[in-house]
Design a protein around this nucleic acid. Structure first.
Length: 175
DNA sequence: CCCTGATTCGC
DNA sequence: GCGAATCAGG
């Protein structure tokens, strides 16, 4: 994602409105980190934002560059989705490939949806919407009992057998 | 632990 | 120019 004129405008607007760098990054959508926002803010000369940020600090020597981390590959064939510098480990097939039937739809009130920055370990990690748009959110519901990465409703969907497996199963066991 | 902005420097 | 890694701090 590059800094197009529109994106720079949105950045400037949100930043001057007082949003934090992380909040601005979340609004700009997946692939934009708060570091990217801060870097751009400085290059644009917007760092002041009226307020004196903090006392001048001497230095911050940058240590040797860390080795690039490997793309996460998890238990038995999860996929990896890479958006910009963000690598999302997608759980194995039941989660990624399960199609929702109408009666399985889980309606998550907009009020309880959260951005990536708002997502906490204790919140449901079920993705909602297109990760490449600023509207992308996570479910954000609290777990029922401190288990798994999903709330009860989404866990039901996530861990049910894949549709193809259900068909195969049905074919095997008769009918 | 959560978060904030600032800075350096390899790319 | 870009932004990850890191720092310093609340």
């Amino acid at each position: 994602m590059s800094w197009t004129q529109e994106r720079v405008e949105l950045l400037r607007k949100l930043w001057l409105e007082g949003l934090s760098a992380a909040q601005v990054a979340a609004e700009l959508g997946a692939g934009v980190t708060r570091n990217a926002v801060i870097g751009k803010i400085h290059r644009l000369g917007l760092a002041e934002r009226g307020k004196a940020a903090s006392a001048p600090r001497p230095r911050a020597q940058r240590p040797a560059r860390a080795a690039p981390c490997e793309a996460p590959i998890r238990n038995g064939g999860g996929a990896t989705m890479v958006i910009g510098n963000l690598a999302l480990a997608v759980a194995p097939r039941p989660v990624v490939a399960t199609a929702l039937r109408p009666d399985q739809e889980v309606v998550v009130p907009i009020s309880m949806r959260v951005t990536l920055m708002e997502l906490r370990e204790t919140m449901c990690h079920w993705p909602l919407g297109d990760p490449t748009t600023p509207e992308f959110r996570f479910c954000g519901s609290r777990y029922e009992d401190g288990e798994g990465p999903y709330c009860r409703q989404h866990a039901r969907i996530a861990y049910q057998p894949h549709a193809a497996d259900r068909r195969r199963q049905a074919g095997r066991s008769g009918r």
